[in-house]
Design a protein around this nucleic acid. Sequence first.
DNA 1: CAGATATTTGGCAATATAGCCAAACAGCCA
DNA 2: TGGCTGTTTGGCTATATTGCCAAATATCTG
Lengths: 108, 108
Amino acid sequence: MDKKQKALFEARARIIKAMAHPTRLYIVDELSRSERCVAELTEMIGADTSTVSKHLSILKNAGLIKDEKRGTQVFYYLKTPCILNFFGCVESVLKSTAEENISLIESK
Amino acid sequence: MDKKQKALFEARARIIKAMAHPTRLYIVDELSRSERCVAELTEMIGADTSTVSKHLSILKNAGLIKDEKRGTQVFYYLKTPCILNFFGCVESVLKSTAEENISLIESK
DNA sequence: CAGATATTTGGCAATATAGCCAAACAGCCA
DNA sequence: TGGCTGTTTGGCTATATTGCCAAATATCTG
């Protein structure tokens, strides 16, 4: 693996890593329905505001979401809706694993 | 966010987390072309065999790849090729971020 | 069985991540 | 300006991840 190729995989991993957390997945999912301000997300998630704010900045730095300030509030929204394609596949992995577990139990 | 919903996002995050590493992305990419044994991947990646083996077991536990033993070798292959859909979107995030950076520079 | 090859596991040190609290900061309004 | 609301940042501790080495395990072959 040469240097250039390595850099590409590192760049890709940074983006995926940004989504590799339940709270951040939740945020992405929620923003796919509509934009939200920090306070709204904090309420839904049930963590400290500062924690949610940090998760948002991770998603933002990865280039997945954008923000817009309106008065004292900051609204966040999805930048690249294609992210949602991730979910379909993740779901099918979950499903296939679950099915295997079931057949393991049944054939016992 | 209720308990059930939380568990679902945690399950999804576990799968995404398994891919959130450059070496593991490389492995998935490589296995999308053909199955490979540990020694082959180790050679391509240029890390310790034990390191590669651990990465493989992370992918396997997440349900993304499967293995098959043949003699002393263990061959790994993709279990859910739809994972590759991830890459398309990751690429478009990378591209859009890059374009923004360029326009930032140009409008300076 | 002994030796060789391929892979996994245990253990450890370095580094990264998560979440909370407290404090700083920003914009609004009286 | 001073206080209020909403958000971000700094700092800390607890926990998780990474990657190497050494050792264990498995399979094949003479």
